[in-house]
Design a protein around this nucleic acid. Structure first.
Length: 501
RNA sequence: GGCGGUAUCGUCUAGGGGACUAGGACACAGCCCUCUCAAGGCUGGAACACGGGUUCGAAUCCCGUUACCGCUACCA
């Protein structure tokens, strides 16, 4: 089973195309470790795989790599499911839990041992640790020395009989291991730089690379698309595929996502869990769109895309090599764009519960008046970037009365007596209107301003404070329309009383 | 240290020998619109890491340097 360099490299580079002359449905997977929440980097890797599967009518599989019992938790597994569900990244077939497959990993490792592709290493782990520490102290790179483990058959039998523990190491052949990476092109590693790595620990548990390859073969994965931090694992894995006599899949190593300081994105950069963004009122479609553009581009200037469009345009050729910095400003802008594209009834279904949670309205009541509610949403979404922005601005349309903000009062109601008189006049003018429409109100109020020899703004601004409590709002006539006649007049009354007393 | 990867405006990117006085987007600044705030429109500042080649010609190809990132475990 030892391969020459020619054989090994040829096998690695030839397999993707030649292994299957017939058209096979692509099978890709997302394989996170359940050691935290769903990270945006993981979400993006999942997205690329998902887009690929959906575009080429393949299967997108989910595998939870829970073999590290120390760090894996059920909460994390749930968080991954939740994150994927929120984003709408649905997987095909049942979830694979890696921990359930250790028997096969174990068997595969022993198969390698039987063929001579791997060998027993009775060296105590402590001893190796010592040698490594020594080498590092000297400033040398440590590499496991195969000769150290070389035993005669008799010696092996004796140790086996004595019940001495051993790890199984893969016998790395001479030559070069290379593959045509879908994003980087040809990548090659001289095998001499790869040490005989452990595939099965002395306690019988499989090591990562063994488990991954065993599972990817069992799941019939045709393309492994993952973060480029796995590039140096790839030659080891290819060697394993070959030794196991399995077809080597294609590989695509996508770049990492960095924080604004250029370092790998971590908690100190702020929110890195997709759940954080869900909580902040982001739309999953916007998140997906933004994530897709970090590490991939269409080739033209298209930026805002719906999910179907993303599927249609996705292509591994558009994948980048360079790490991208996660820019929350652009994410927010992207969300604003998607807010505008979301059908109003969908948006209503999202905003109504959020309003109820904020305590400024009852979801069912809002949804019972779709024409009015959609109108309000139309007004607010153009000046919002998140769902939370909409909720925040919605309160003047929902409550009976509003609180007058001190800064607004200082700014727009400087002269109390004069303002009270003006607001009373405004009130009377509006109250006399036969119908409550923006056009009639605008006509009447502009006429009032002209009669008083002042600009429209001199009326609109104080009126705005009376209606919404602050100095910022949608156009004043739309506000009047959607706040409604009764409440608008009541607020004007309240403002006049406030200024007089 | 060794191995591998990457390198265009502050950020995301287009670009794959001449169409580049390097295009778009976010952010920023100014102007327009205007009842405020947004949205929208217009304008502006802002980049090919450095050094060698190859070529009539290089952001684009090659080599080197530098910087950054990743891996370097009986972690995943």
């Amino acid at each position: 089973m030892h391969m020459s360099s020619v054989e090994s490299s040829a096998a690695a580079s030839a397999s993707p195309a030649s292994a299957s002359p017939a058209v096979v449905r692509p099978r890709v997977r997302f394989a996170p470790s359940p050691t935290g929440f769903l990270h945006v980097g993981g979400a993006r890797t999942a997205l690329f795989n998902w887009l690929y599967a959906r575009k080429y009518d393949g299967d997108f599989l989910l595998r939870i790599e829970d073999t590290d019992r120390q760090r894996s938790t059920d909460d994390s597994t749930r968080a991954i499911f939740d994150g994927l569900n929120w984003l709408g990244l649905d997987w095909d077939e049942e979830v694979v839990f890696q921990g359930a497959n250790v028997a096969r990993h174990h068997a595969d490792a022993h198969r390698l041992l039987a063929t001579g592709a791997a060998y027993r290493d009775f060296t105590p782990a402590m001893e190796i640790e010592r040698l490594r520490a020594e080498a590092e102290a000297r400033g040398d790179a440590y590499r496991f020395d195969r000769a150290m483990a070389e035993l005669t058959d008799a010696e092996t039998e004796a140790k086996l009989a004595a019940g001495e523990p051993y790890a199984i190491r893969f016998r790395v052949p001479d030559g070069t291991t290379e593959w045509p990476d879908l994003v980087h092109g040809r990548i090659a590693f001289p095998n001499k730089d790869i040490e005989d790595f452990v595939i099965l620990r002395s306690d019988g548990t499989p090591v990562y690379n063994m488990a991954v390859v065993s599972d990817d073969i069992a799941m019939r994965i045709t393309l492994v698309m993952r973060g480029d931090d796995h590039i140096s694992n790839t030659p080891k894995q290819i060697l394993l595929y070959q030794a196991l006599g399995a077809a080597v899949p294609q590989f695509a190593h996508v770049p990492m996502i960095h924080g604004t300081d250029g370092k790998k994105l971590s908690k100190r950069h702020g929110a890195t869990a997709v759940g954080d963004y869900q909580y902040q009122g982001l739309l999953p479609g916007a998140m997906l769109n933004f994530l897709a553009l970090l590490g991939w581009s269409t080739g033209d200037d298209t930026e805002v895309m719906s999910l179907p469009e993303l599927i249609r345009r996705f292509d591994t050729d558009g994948l980048h090599k360079k790490a991208a910095v996660f820019d929350t400003k652009k994410l927010e802008w992207m969300n604003g764009q998607h807010l505008l594209l979301t059908p109003l009834d969908e948006l209503a279904a999202l905003v109504a519960p959020a309003i109820e949670r904020a305590g400024t309205g009852v979801a069912a009541d809002l949804l019972a008046r779709p024409a009015w509610f959609h109108g309000v949403l139309e007004l607010l979404r153009v000046r919002s970037r998140t769902l939370d922005d909409i909720v925040r601005q919605a309160s003047p349309f929902l409550t009976e009365l509003v609180e007058f903000e001190p800064e607004a009062v200082t700014k727009q109601w400087r002269d109390a007596a004069a303002t009270a008189e003006l607001l009373q006049a405004t009130h009377d003018c509006l109250a006399a209107l036969p119908e409550w429409t923006p056009a009639t109100m605008e006509e009447a109020l502009r006429a009032l301003a002209e009669a008083r020899g002042i600009s429209g703004g001199k009326i609109f601004q104080p009126l705005r404070v009376a209606l919404v409590g602050g100095t910022v709002s949608p156009g004043i006539f739309e506000v009047l329309e959607y706040v409604g006649r009764e409440r608008s007049l009541a607020r004007l009354d309240a403002a006049v009383r406030f200024l007089q007393g």
